[in-house]
Amino acid sequence: MIPAAPGAGPGAGALPTGTGHAPCHHGELLQGVFLDGDGRRCAGLVTLPMAGPGSSAEFVRRPGTEPGALTVTPADRTKAARAAALAVAECAERTGQPPCGGELRLTGDIPVGLGMGSSTSDVIATVRAVADSYRLRLTPGAVARLAVRAEQACDPLMLDGRPVLFAQREGRVLEVLGPALPPLAVVGCTLGRGAPVDTLSLPAYEPADSDVRAWERLRTRLRRALATGDVHLLGQVATASARRGQEVLAHPEFDALAVIARRVGAAGVQIAHSGAVAGVLFDPATPGLRHRVRSCLRALDSHGIPATRIFTTFTTTKELLHGRKGLDGLDGPGSLSGLDGAGGLDGPAHRGGDRQAGPRTPRRPARLPAL
């Protein structure tokens, strides 16, 4: 627990109010069952971070009211409501105050049901807002623990963006794989016509020892890819993980997506293992990247796979150009203009407003598939 900065509190006589924010991700680079430091099996994942969309929360605390007197807007954010109650209890105990009720308001622009961590983002933003109303800043470990209690499993959105193998059902880091991902350019799309994945209907799956060994080999290769900045090795790992995920998800377009990636010279593909979002991964240093991305967009369209977003994992031109040339005509941080109406990197794949990546589905509890 770290005290918030002085002066961050509300004005005199005002109800204690706090705010919080959390990002989303673009599915996983790796997901499976791994061994922890004690040799115990743990479901784990490595997410692909994506800047831009996120969830924001405002919590108005009402001291003296009953702890159950919590209201949430929108009213269907049940996991966020549980997170608010848990965070109030935690923060009240830390500050020696009685638990109370309050009002939580959530806003955000994360597409729902595609496996981009929308529910975890809501939960983390909520926990941070509640803590802020108490003038506390909870550690990532404490936020993760509350998030798992609120939704049974969570994504590592409370961390600092370093690539980690994260035990989503336990809210703990199994391994920090490196300081950062190598620069990637990603053409996002949706599979299964963008329909949300009903993870409750997925068949139960108990991995064999050979499966765990295969995932551990992918873990080793990903660690090496990050240590050496090898985008193509990273792409191979992500593709292998995505292909294993098809044993459960069975997206009908996956084979076509993998073929498109090979034909346009991409490093590989990645998917959300609990949703419909997917991405074609490019090394920004690849010659002719602009042409390759255009070809990818045309191929996706010809196969009826909706392109949604083109983005990068780097944020500054300096980071890109430091030994990694390849984006001729870079217009700014992470941008790539002139892609035949595709927008720039870090922007919607089609002009005409901030179109969501998937259908406008109502918020619902998002569960990761059983592994």
Rank of each mutant, 00 (worst) to 15 (best):
E216V: 15
L218W: 08
L218S: 11
T220C: 04
T220V: 07
T220W: 01
R221C: 01
L222C: 14
R223Q: 14
R224A: 10
A225G: 11
L226I: 10
L226C: 10
A227G: 14
A227H: 15
A227D: 15
T228M: 00
G229W: 12
D230V: 00
V231E: 06
H232T: 09
L233H: 07
G235L: 13
G235R: 08
Q236E: 15
Q236N: 14
Q236K: 13
Q236G: 15
V237Y: 03
V237P: 13
T239H: 05
A240G: 15
A240E: 15
S241A: 12
A242N: 10
R244S: 11
R244E: 13
R244I: 08
R244M: 12
G245E: 03
Q246E: 09
Q246D: 02
E247T: 10
E247D: 13
E247R: 15
E247Y: 06
V248N: 08
V248D: 04
V248H: 05
L249I: 05
A250C: 14
A250G: 04
H251C: 01
H251I: 00
P252L: 09
P252S: 04
E253M: 08
E253H: 01
E253P: 00
F254H: 06
F254V: 03
D255N: 05
A256S: 12
V259E: 14
I260L: 02
I260F: 00
A261F: 08
A261R: 11
A261S: 15
R262L: 07
R263K: 10
V264H: 02
A266G: 14
A266N: 06
A266V: 09
A266C: 13
A266S: 11
A267E: 12
G268K: 07
G268S: 11
Q270V: 00
I271G: 03
I271P: 12
I271Q: 02
I271S: 03
A272D: 10
H273E: 07
A276Q: 06
